[in-house]
């Protein structure tokens, strides 16, 4: 069983997503609605990581190698302006896709394990991950053209 390792990887990714969203808000404070929502979504990811802790404790460690090292970190470039924004959103998009996919996988796994609590968490928190993904995609669509063609 590799459930615990998988849970820990999702936890790590949620943490990374939270940090990336905070960085996005800090580096692009000139777009206050972007910054405010980014911070809000960062809090969601922090809460997700925390909520996973209960389940991490529920499953024993497996025999697998330390996969954390094999999952490369994704960090925003941290430069301002609209081109920087496009780049940073692109990184956050990758992270949120990863997180979203992992919640979907975990939902299947929890079903197979008949772990009702984990299943409920996947339903609820996975839905929030989808909202995060939709937001990142939308902000990318808003920023992309000006950022890539016109920004200095």
């Amino acid at each position: 069983m590799h459930i615990r390792a998988y849970l820990e990887l999702l936890q790590m990714r949620e943490q990374q997503l939270a940090e990336a969203l905070v960085a996005l808000a800090e580096d692009h404070a000139d777009a206050p609605d972007l910054a405010a929502t980014s911070r809000r979504l960062a809090r969601w990811s922090g809460q997700h990581a925390q909520a996973l802790q209960v389940f991490v404790g529920r499953y024993p460690p497996g025999e697998e190698p330390d996969l954390a090292a094999a999952v490369p970190p994704l960090a925003p470039a941290r430069f301002s302006g609209n081109y920087g924004l496009v780049h940073d959103l692109q990184i956050v998009w990758l992270l949120v896709q990863d997180v979203q996919a992992r919640w979907e996988v975990l939902r299947q796994v929890s079903w197979a394990l008949r772990d009702r609590e984990l299943f409920a968490a996947c339903e609820e928190l996975g839905a929030e991950a989808r909202r995060q993904a939709a937001w990142v995609r939308a902000r990318l669509a808003e920023a992309a053209v000006q950022g890539i063609i016109a920004a200095p």
């Binding site: 609209n82 669509a141 053209v145 016109a150 920004a151 200095p152």
Partner: peptide, 20 residues
Amino acid sequence: AWGPPTPVVDMLRYIEEGSL
């Protein structure tokens, strides 16, 4: 019409960064 029309609040940002 490739994306949503630009609200004035974003126009100000684009002027600030020199792209507008």
